[in-house]
Design a protein around this nucleic acid. Structure first.
Lengths: 254, 254
DNA sequence: CCTGGCGTTGCGACATGTGCAACGGCCATT
DNA sequence: AATGGCCGTTGCACATGTCGCAACGCCAGG
């Protein structure tokens, strides 16, 4: 174990108790002031520690940001997976989980259909953002300005006659999706494939992921697929509840 | 600056992007695997890094705990006080800091005017919630439902002819305040006293406190007082920045 | 059975972090 | 105004703690 890092990290819980000046930190660490100063400086450069106007140190914004990311990254996929599997067992179709990141929508998990005719997709692959049901849900939840800006700069390829044609139509669709809390893609990407999707929300109500059930016409009609909507929404809500509800993993014992 | 600590801390944002195994961490740090291993171990012992079942590393729950604890121990008054003093030195008038708690707005700090004629107030005393500028800011940020409910159950004493008359007028005023991001009380409490106020916000943008400058007519007119608004807002923003731990200095090198 | 990849360990060389002592600014006290 | 004490900061010589190497053990895939 690294002594220097160990000492530096020991400063964090110490500062979590409240602001402290250099002398206090050095004392409680049991090291010389100059040593504490260098450690604090390094922590400061990484934004984990902030120096307030009275020169005392306290935890910094970066730590809060990291904590946030830790929570969000933590478990969506792990939490969601069993639910996706169960949904697949119930309906038999392909189930997807997707997130929005850097102006793209990515599948982060899927459970393949148990029917011989399957829809093609790959985890990690960007989805057709202008037509996919999950994309609509994720984009519909973006702040208005960002949503507008993104819609304007997208291309609107006409995969089929039902593909979203332009930014105006897309924004209108997003507004509807936002209102109703679910989305569909009825032959907008592949003529013969339909999807129904529902959002997964975090504790603050924001959409953190979206899940969908997809099936080709030859297996079920669009009408039949739509009857699965309540089931999909219930599954998504279950994931939302689990994701925002409990503290997921235990920490390491001291 | 400490090289070892620097490297160790560089791992955190790296893992924030997603889980990574030892080799990836070592590569992106540009160090030998054994070095990365020791750093990760140290981070792990402090709970900042979690090792999931597939042996890959990710950010740990301890980060969240630290951030949470730091939030709770944040004392606005302590952080704000030097700023209040400085503002008082610049304008000479009485400066107040207030928070909302249990359906009341309380002064939690003040710096007295340096003019002989002073406004009376006491720290800890509930303020006139329907007219005080700081109260307007604090209530304007409440969730809509809570704000409505509170407005309905309040009394609207007519301290002066300019006092807020009823819930309807109050809610309208709060909406305006919410929109403009600052508030005034021009003779609504005491005929001869005016205030201008600005909000202090936490990292999440929510209003955690409000500060105001107050002065009687005999010292400065309402118009003159209003010219201080930019200064008051700047001070409030400075407190907000510090309270949320925003580090104004340079970022960390890649 | 072998091969390749990955995490892990022990160790010598040396870069790095350490504590000391001295400096300088700030504030309160005289 | 002068003084003394407090605290953060800096430069430096020493040795401590850290680094990278190489080798090992383990597991999975061929």
């Amino acid at each position: 174990m690294s002594q220097t890092v160990d000492r530096a990290l020991s400063i964090l819980p110490l500062l979590a108790e409240g602001p402290a000046d250099l002398g206090q930190v050095a004392d409680r660490l049991g090291v010389h002031k100059s040593t504490a100063l260098r450690l604090l400086r390094t922590l400061h450069e990484h934004g984990l520690v902030y120096r307030q106007s009275d020169q005392r140190y306290r935890l910094g914004a970066r730590l809060f940001a990291l904590a946030q990311e830790a929570m969000e990254n933590l478990d969506i996929r792990e939490i969601a997976h069993p639910h996706l599997v169960r949904l697949n067992e119930q309906c038999g179709h392909t189930v997807h989980l997707a997130v929005y990141e850097e102006q793209e929508v990515l599948y982060i998990d899927k459970v393949d259909s148990r029917y011989p005719v399957r829809m093609y997709s790959r985890i990690g692959k960007p989805v057709a953002i202008t037509v996919a049901a999950v994309a609509k849900l994720l984009l519909a939840d973006l702040p208005t300005a960002e949503r507008r800006a993104l819609a304007e700069q997208l291309d609107y390829p006409l995969y089929t006659a039902r593909s979203t044609a332009n930014a105006e139509a897309f924004l209108k669709e997003l507004a509807a999706v936002r209102e109703q809390g679910w989305a569909t893609d009825l032959g907008g990407h592949e003529e013969s494939i339909n999807c129904v999707a529902a959002p997964v929300r975090g504790a603050d109500g924001r959409v953190v992921a979206a899940m969908s059930v997809s099936a080709p016409n030859v297996v079920v009609t669009a009408e039949e697929l739509l009857t699965l909507l309540p089931l999909v929404r219930r599954t998504a809500d279950a994931i939302s509840g689990e994701y925002s509800g409990r503290t997921p993993v235990k920490g390491t014992p001291a």
